[in-house]
Each structure stands twice: as structure tokens, then as C-alpha cells.
Design a binder for these strands. Sequence first.
DNA 1: ATGAAAGCGCTAACAT
DNA 2: ATGTTAGCGCTTTCAT
Lengths: 344, 344
Amino acid sequence: MARMKGEQTTTERKPQRVTMETVGKIAGVSQVTVSRALSDPSKVSAKTLARIQDAIEATGFVPNGVAGALASNKSKLITALVPSLTNIVYSSMIQSFGRRMRDAGYQLLLSETGLDPREEDATIAAHLSRRPDAILLTGVHHSAQARRMVLAAGIPVVEIWEYSDTPIDMCVGFRHADTGHAAAEFAHRKGYARAATISAGDERARRRKAAFVDRLQALRPGAVPQIDFDTHATLARGREGLSQLLDGHGFDGGVIFCSSDILANGVLVEAQARGLRVPQDIAVIGFGDQDGAAHLEPPLTTIRVDREAFGRAAADILLDRFKTGEAAVPKVDLGFELIARGSA
Amino acid sequence: MARMKGEQTTTERKPQRVTMETVGKIAGVSQVTVSRALSDPSKVSAKTLARIQDAIEATGFVPNGVAGALASNKSKLITALVPSLTNIVYSSMIQSFGRRMRDAGYQLLLSETGLDPREEDATIAAHLSRRPDAILLTGVHHSAQARRMVLAAGIPVVEIWEYSDTPIDMCVGFRHADTGHAAAEFAHRKGYARAATISAGDERARRRKAAFVDRLQALRPGAVPQIDFDTHATLARGREGLSQLLDGHGFDGGVIFCSSDILANGVLVEAQARGLRVPQDIAVIGFGDQDGAAHLEPPLTTIRVDREAFGRAAADILLDRFKTGEAAVPKVDLGFELIARGSA
DNA sequence: ATGAAAGCGCTAACAT
DNA sequence: ATGTTAGCGCTTTCAT
């Protein structure tokens, strides 16, 4: 279609942005009054308010939060960093955290940091440039630079999913090593002759596993074969782990502590495929009590952590900090629970 | 601790925000030069650049992206709405989308909309107030108001996870009804005498199921018992679904089309618990080819959609639009594939 | 109850 | 290669 220089077709023309100025002009008031009508309607007379609301409807005005954030130095934005978006452990925490924050008028800027801790620093910097009102970090191990940056930002920092006596600011979590200890004590009480571990490639999973091995060997000496993957946990890795244990490590039965339920699920499947009885031949302890763990055959013995509660607690201490200026309980240890079901 | 009026303790004092002005003063240049050094270093002399970089290091300066966004009318922010953060279907799409966008310098503002479509409008408005450079929506069914708002924003809109000939702007997805048709044809070819469905409470799941029933009944008349949950899919619901079918609907064997793999997994578990053979007594077709589907016993026959590819494609057409000003291929149907494994 | 003025920290012309 | 001048669209005083 031919068109003349400088002319613009309808589809190409950028819609003229509607500002408070525009709305005010239509309603016959100044821009400031529109601002007030939106932020505190009680400060504006009823009839003015009505006219402003009409003008907003008519124009389809959407306030420019960027300008507002710049002027007020409040963004109503919370920044969150998680290792993985697809890992149910993190996504369910973020889900409950996000819901509560959203109810309080905040939105979530979310990024994945992956398994490599060094990736985190750049992401933190990028996030801070958005001038969030707070930042949520996963775990309590961060680089010196990361700590410096978030501290310099002068905003509340919540570390989630791991407890520390010395968080950057606030934290909500549990002690990962303790879960390994608890699993080891359970296995020992149950009298399993042999034990092994299967672990995914994240640092906290490794710590849980190491704690299991340490405690078990303290209770009763004996080798504990360990399969360590350097990837995320998947069901296939669980199957593979059991196979390696059985075929390559001379493991001929006993209890297996897995760093996550999905790995444990894989062990169950592989055991079934090989005609091994659970828990008589192979016993399995998982971690996470994820969806379906209780409904597997046999039901999975696992360590339960209330991820939703972590998210809610994180939101609560944050909102409290916003309100009071200081958090009453900045360090929260929500603990865990070993759930004995049929698999061990 | 007593302290004088107006005095501030160290811990209370908000860190003085470092601006480009500050950095420039230290480096002996103007604020604009600092801006240039950051956005296009080639425009600044080597020695100036070095001094500026020193000043940035020394001060720990983090650019204020809010101010930048306001001034340039570019936020480098992409807004995304998904029904659920914990559903692997959506999180894996978002993951691959987010990774590619992040590599291109964009960040993701992410919100959950839930199962209720009406919740979406308010969230869209909130997101648009951040002045994102583009918006990603799940599915192609949105309210008239939602369409109006995103259109008025004058930014690219990508609808993902569902194909439409008439998207708001661009779309990447597949035709959900076609998957039901394909499953029905497969079931018919395989000669299953009886069929049933189990579906979760989302609108697209319902459409897949309805398409299955329609096509199957077109191929060969006969009732198709349907279990419809109005919640998200879980393994427990899958077990429950099979139980209801068996105990309450007089379903005594045949093929079951599930609206997701997690439901199918539950059916498998319940069948195993009841000592039913799969696929001889109960055959199962899932949807999604989720992690582990191939490793279940028996491996799950399912419909595979390449969710990561959706995310990547969405990022690609968006980045292309940013670059060229118009997308060459705004509507992408990535299709699906029925994978016949052992369960049906 | 409403308005005028200043300014948040940048980027985008336009100089030089 | 660097600086000057204007805004971007709001919120925040301070007036009236």
C-alpha cells in the first residue's frame, strides 16, 4: 500500500499515552488532584472524585508506576532470586510468598540463578537497579560482593529456604544438615545393615547427604556408597542411581537416602522394574514430601518441609518490617519432620 | 541508648544513594558522560572511561533503572502472566523464555493468575503500570477489557501455550482440541472397547477432554464416563479418578484419557495398588510428557508438547519484533506429538 | 479541597 | 569527546 512521506497508518501510530495531566484536563482539575484521587480518595471531594473516575474510564488511563516510583522512591516491587523456576521446592515457596505480597500490593520480579553461585552477583545487580522495596534470596551463602550490594541498597533482605544464625538481614528456613542427621538416626534405629546415598548437584542437597553419611558412620562404622549427580534431580537420575549402586558399587540392598523425592521416586520405579521388594530389599528415604510422595507404592518415607509456610513467613516478616521499620523476629527456623511411611 | 534530637545512629542512617552525578564528580566529568560510559563506552575516551570505572567501583554505584526507564521510555522489562507458578507446564515455558530474554538484557515480572480468568484483568493493569516493553499472556482467551488494555499500551503482546488464527498480536502454541482428536483416533485404532476421561479444572484441559470424547463418539458410539475435577491436577486426584471410575461409574476396564501426566501417573499407581494390569486391564493416555513419563512402569503413552520450544519461540519472535519493528511470523503453531509407549 | 513549584535520576537532543 | 538543556510523569512540600 502506497503512503505518503510522514503519513502514518492507524496500525502504526503509537497510542498517545494518557497521563494524569490528560485525565485532569478532562475532569477539569489539576494533575495533582488526579494523583490524590488515586492515592488517597478521601482528600478529594466526592464530585471531583466522580469526574476524575469518569475521565479515567473514558481514557483508559493506567498510572505510570515508573514515574511514581522515581518520585516517591517506593517501587512496590519485590525482587526474588531462585535457583530454578521449575523445581517445585522453589516454585511453591515463591507461589505462597508472591500471593501474600500481591495481596499487600507488591509485585514480583523473579530471576533464576541456576546451580552456579557466581551467576548470582550479576543478577542481584540487575535487580537492584529496579530499586525494589526488598529482595528475597535463596539460601544463606552469598558472595561478599552480593552481601555488600544488597546491604548498600538499604532495603530489607530475606534469605529463605535455609536457616542461619547470622543472616544478612532476615531469614526463614531450616537447618539442612539436621535433616541428614535425622535420616541417619532413623535408618540406624530401623536397623538397616547397609546404606547408600543418591544426591543431585546442588550445594544444599550435598550438605544434607554429607550429614547423613557423617551421622550414620558415627553411629556404626561401615562404608556408604554415594552417587552424586552434578545436575538437577530427575526421575531418570533416580533410576540410574539405583542401577549404579546395584551394578557398580556392590550395593546389594539396604537403605538409600535421596536428596529429593523425585530421585527417590526413580529408585522406587527401578526397584519395581527389577522385581526388588521395597522396603525389604531396598529401602528408600526421600526429601521434600512432594506431591504424590504419600501416594506412591509403597508410600515414600521422606523429610517434610512446609515450603508454603516458608513463603508465607517470609512475606509476613517483610510486611511487618515495612510497617514497623524493624522486624521483631528476623530469624525464623521452621524446622522439618521425618515422615515414616512404607518405603523405609 | 540516649541520643540527641536529629542525630542518627550509624545503623539507622539510610545509605546515601550514589547517582551518576556523584560518580561524575569523583571522576571529574559531568553526569552525562557517566551515562554515556555505561550505555556506549565507545563514545568516551579511554582515560575518562577508566576514571569513571574507578569511581563506580569505589562508590558501589548501581544505576537507577527506574529513572532510566522513565527518561527513555524503555524499561527492559517483560511482564508475564501464567495460571500457576508450580505447574511444570508453565514454569518450564517461562524458564526457557526467561533465559533467552535475560540473555538479551530483559528481566521478567511474573504473576500468577490462577484458574479464574477474571483475576487476569486486574493483574494486567498492575503489570502495565510498570511500563513493560512487552507482555506475555498464557492462552488466547482474554476479556475484552484485557485486550483493550494491552492494545492501548502499544507494546508487543505474545500469547503462549495456545494457537489462534486471531491472536491479539502474536502467538506461539498448539491447537488443544487437536490433541484430544489425536488421542481418540489412537484409542480407536488400538481397538479399546471402552473409554473414559479424567480432567483437571482448567479450561484448556476441559477442551482437550471434550475433543477426545467428541471424536471418539464420532468414530464409534458409546458412553464415555468423565471425571472432572475443578482443582489443579495432582497424583492423588489421578488415583481418586480411577477409583471413582471403577467403583462409581461401572467402568470395568478400557482406556483412560487424562488431561495431564500427573493424573495419568496417579491412575498407574492406583491400578498397581489394585493389582490391575496396564495396559491389558486399564490403558492410560496422558498429556504433557512430563519428567519421568518415559520412566514409569509401564512407560506412559502421552501427548508431547515441547514447552521449552514454546518459550524460546516466544522470545525469538519478540526479540525480532524489537529489532525490526514488525514480526515476520507472528503466529506460530508448534504442534504436538502422540508418543505411544507401554501404557496404552 | 485544590493548586503551583520543585525535583526524583536518568536519557535525548543539541551544542561545542 | 564532552557538556548544557530539557524533559519523562509522577509525588512531595508548601500555599491558598
